[in-house]
Design a protein around this nucleic acid. Structure first.
Length: 809
RNA sequence: GCCGGUGUGGUGGAAUGGUAGACACAGGGGACUUAAAAUCCCCCGGCAGCAAUGCUGUACCGGUUCGAGUCCGGUCACCGGCACCA
């Protein structure tokens, strides 16, 4: 056969696939369905990064194997095209984001096709397409109707120099990521989504899905469930002060209370407060600080006592002082705490600084030195009235019951998860389809008027006071109220980047439907996603958000499964050659185009899978790519080496069957590196022992998901296409013969006292006694046991012999 | 601080408690060639030895076991996430 001309071969087959559409998914096919998904890319101006092919190739391989196993596969692709880089580019160059987006998508499409992925391109979706975001807006309206979308005034991050609202991710070390300017907190009215209503279900749902464990744990930690009790303290002001605690057992140890500076009682008690000026100054100071400053590590505790008001400990009637301090957060629990300095590190620090009493209520530590915080059963209750002598655990149940019986509190669960701030003062996002009417308040845009399109603007910058650039478009902003017909104004905020990606996997099922976001029929056929691979960095953002949207859609009866993704895996990053993150500034960025040009798409695909453990970060190596190219050359040359025998040859029977088993199993665990190693070993065997046409055919089928172009070319050239009437990829995945996996002879290790001394070859499944006698015939073993007495013989079938010896008398 | 993960040759990495280093890259040697490239074959953890071979070796200390890279306890280092969440 001629030279392996990868460029010609790859072009040829990509054209054939473009025309024949072997990757088209058929809704309603009687075959079992399989839905494989990768996170759709943001079409950046830099084009495809070598990081992209890692997950894409892995799931491409899985879904190609599924097709060969007889599944009707959906493996779609799309573009998550709203985003800041495009918007910033528009600000700088006045190029309309639509134009930039179109160019970038065209470039990405070309690059993805160049790599030969089995995407069903007819189902490609773009989040910026009005036909798509019409439904993003529609889902938002459903959430609004069900009380899950609401507008509320809240503090946001504000860059004083860019004069713009920043997302939390854009605040790095307390300063603006872009300009390094000071970031402060500013009150602003924002749309929020009530994800906290789903906190418990987002935790519980994790038990029903097959996600990698670290993703589950990370989501659970992020949601941050804690159980405890809410306790009511009477105050001298007459108001009941409610606090949340996970340690109700320590109630007898309360020596003071702390309110968050934003707590409503601070204002309410104004006239009762002897030192209101001092309090007020502290509150103002706290407001000015960013979240970052307020939570800075090792910061000295600060605070002010509210003079004139005290609280009564419900359990012992003791009167305790009340402070305000910024170590108490208004966003968690009730915004107020009971302080137990003996058993909470933060309270301990505060008490030390302000000279407050520290009372021990759990034995086991030294509270003079530090707070004793252990919650296990190492401590016994003391100084705690009826709780004395109990373990912490028992005391928690006892006191909780007591509080409940006396109407002074109840068992309570709290979550760290906050509602999702859904407004962005940006241009390049989905307009929030709401209208503000002076008479009727917020009124949703009627569904038949969707989508609300983005108007053309002249300037893409936010305004000086941090409003969206859309707010300058008075023609667009001024509209009539859908309810009363009077003059009203459109919402000018847009949705965050995470909106479009929260439901895109549903649109793939039915991408051209103008009547519904997805048809019932398509959703019931394809849902849920069978295997979803994506980055760990999306675990507490995209993955959580889309699970939340899906649960909501399930609740309103428009999807049929409670969870969107049955299985989730994650890949590690591809680093630069030196082991650092790839970046333009480091100049270590690898362009996939160059690799494909130099070695071909199949080599690129193979190398990115062979590079290392899929879950771990790994540096790219230009040198190592060559090894994969060399392997494909060797595969190519096998065509000229094989005998005409159509079946698996006797000589390679064991090796071929073992490789079929190994490759099949490894693909299921994304252990592509060892699958490829096994195929390399098989090829090395072929070079050593020769091979039949049947041997090569089996190898080609195994290679097909990994390197589809070269396989189809060889399949055709060797006459298999004619023989089977099909492309290699359309053939059944090979099965192995279990009886042929092990050769009839086996080399096993011989140990003496656990140390390897020799190896012997024995017939498979030999009797133990035979194996021992055979081992003792071995010269090296004889030397090792000379002058020794054998006290024990351990034989593990077909594996190892271990002779335990001691010096003979 | 809390939660999770990782530590194996010059490099990327393999090893259901059972022959550590598969498979590759780099390196060394040989064949072919006028030569180079490509290709094919061989060697390749460390120490000692011409060799056969022996000793040693999976971050460190200890334990369980006939046998530990793998299991258990402790220590150190690095990576990721969260971080005054009461």
């Amino acid at each position: 056969m001629s030279r392996y001309d990868f460029t010609a071969i790859e072009n040829k087959w990509q054209e054939i696939w473009e025309e024949k559409k072997p990757y088209a998914a058929v809704t309603g096919s009687p075959k079992p369905k399989y839905y494989g998904l990768i996170e759709f890319p943001y079409p950046s101006a830099q084009g495809l990064h070598v990081g992209h092919p890692r997950p894409f190739t892995a799931i491409d391989i899985v879904t190609r194997k599924r097709r060969m196993e007889g599944y009707n596969v959906l493996f779609p692709i799309g573009f998550d095209a709203f985003g800041l880089p495009t918007e910033n580019y528009a600000i700088k160059t006045h190029t309309h984001p639509v134009v930039t987006t179109r160019q970038n998508i065209a470039n990405f499409t070309k690059q993805l096709k160049m790599l030969g992925y089995g995407f069903d391109w007819d189902r490609c979706v773009e989040t910026t397409d009005p036909k798509y975001f019409k439904w993003t807006q529609w889902i938002f309206l459903q959430m609004y109707k069900h009380g899950l979308a609401y507008k509320s005034s809240m503090p946001v991050n504000w860059c004083t120099s860019c004069k713009v609202v920043l997302a939390n991710e854009e605040v790095v070390n307390g300063v603006c990521e872009r300009c390094g300017g000071e970031v402060i907190r500013k009150e602003k009215s924002q749309w929020l989504l009530g994800i906290t209503k789903y906190a418990q279900r987002l935790i519980d749902g994790l038990d029903t899905v097959d996600f990698i464990e670290r993703a589950k744990i990370q989501e659970k930690n992020w949601i941050g469930r804690s159980t405890g009790a809410e306790v009511v303290f009477k105050t001298s002001a007459g108001d009941d002060l409610k606090v949340f605690t996970t340690r109700p057992d320590t109630l007898f140890g309360v020596t003071y209370m702390v309110l968050s500076p934003e707590h409503p009682f601070v204002e309410k008690w104004k006239d009762l407060t002897g030192n209101y000026d001092e309090i007020s100054a502290y509150v103002k100071e706290a407001q000015k600080k960013s979240d970052f400053e307020r939570s800075e590590l090792n910061k000295e505790k600060t605070g002010v006592r509210i003079e004139g008001v005290t609280a009564i400990n419900p359990v012992n009637g003791k009167e305790v002082p009340i402070f305000i301090s910024d170590y108490v957060l208004i966003t968690y629990g009730t915004g107020a705490i009971m302080a137990v300095p003996g058993h909470d590190t933060r309270d301990w620090e505060f008490a030390k600084k302000f000279g407050l009493d520290i009372v021990e209520v759990v034995e086991g530590g030294n509270i003079e030195e530090e707070a004793f915080t252990l919650k296990d059963d190492t401590g016994i209750m003391v100084n705690s009235g009826f709780l004395n002598g109990m373990t912490v655990k028992d005391a928690i149940s006892a006191i909780t019951k007591w509080l409940q019986d006396n109407g002074l509190g109840e068992e309570k669960v709290n979550y760290k998860l906050r509602d999702w701030i859904f407004s962005r003062q940006r241009y390049w996002g989905e307009p929030i389809p709401m209208i503000n009417c002076p008479k009727c308040g917020w009124v949703p845009v009627p569904e038949d008027q969707l989508p609300v399109l983005l108007p053309d603007v002249e300037h893409y910058e936010p305004t000086d006071d941090g409003e969206s650039p859309l707010s300058r478009m008075t023609d667009w902003v001024n509209t009539s109220c859908p309810k009363c017909g009077g003059p009203a104004q459109r919402e000018t905020d847009t949705m965050p980047n995470w909106a479009g990606s929260s439901w895109y996997y549903l649109r793939y099922m039915d991408p051209h439907n103008d009547e519904e976001f997805v048809s019932k029929e398509a959703e019931e056929y394809w849902g849920p996603v069978d295997w979803y691979n994506g980055g760990m960095e999306h675990t507490t953002l995209h993955l959580l958000y889309s699970r939340f949207w899906h649960m909501f859609l399930y609740d309103i009866g428009v999807v049929h499964t409670p969870e969107p993704y049955a299985k989730r895996t994650s890949h590690g990053m591809i680093l630069g050659e030196g082991g650092e993150k790839m970046s333009k500034s480091r100049g270590n960025v690898v362009n996939p185009n160059e690799i494909v040009e130099q070695y071909g798409a199949d080599t690129m695909r193979l190398y990115i899978m062979f590079i290392g453990d899929f879950e771990k970060s790994v540096p790219w190596s230009n040198e190592a790519v060559k090894g994969c190219k060399r392997f494909l050359d060797r595969v190519w040359n096998l065509a000229d080496m094989c005998s005409e025998e159509k079946g698996i040859s006797k000589a390679n029977e064991g090796a071929v069957n073992r490789t079929i088993k190994k490759v099949g199993e490894d693909i299921e665990q994304l252990k592509m590196n060892t699958a490829i190693a096994a195929m390399m070993t098989l090829v090395n065997d072929f070079y050593a022992k020769g091979l039949s046409k049947g041997d090569l055919k089996a190898l080609l089928l195994l290679l097909s998901p990994f390197v589809p172009h070269i396989v189809e070319e060889m399949w055709e050239k060797l006459g298999f296409a004619e023989e089977t009437g099909m492309m290699a990829m359309q053939n059944p995945w090979p099965s192995y013969d279990g009886s042929k996996l092990i050769d009839s002879e086996k080399e096993i290790a011989v140990q003496v006292n656990g140390k390897l001394r020799s190896t012997i070859v024995i017939p498979l499944d030999s009797e133990d006694s035979f194996v021992v006698s055979k081992a003792l015939e071995d010269e090296k073993v004889q030397r090792a046991v000379a002058g020794m007495e054998i006290v024990k013989k351990i034989v593990v079938k077909n594996r190892i012999v271990n002779l335990i010896v001691k010096p003979s008398k």
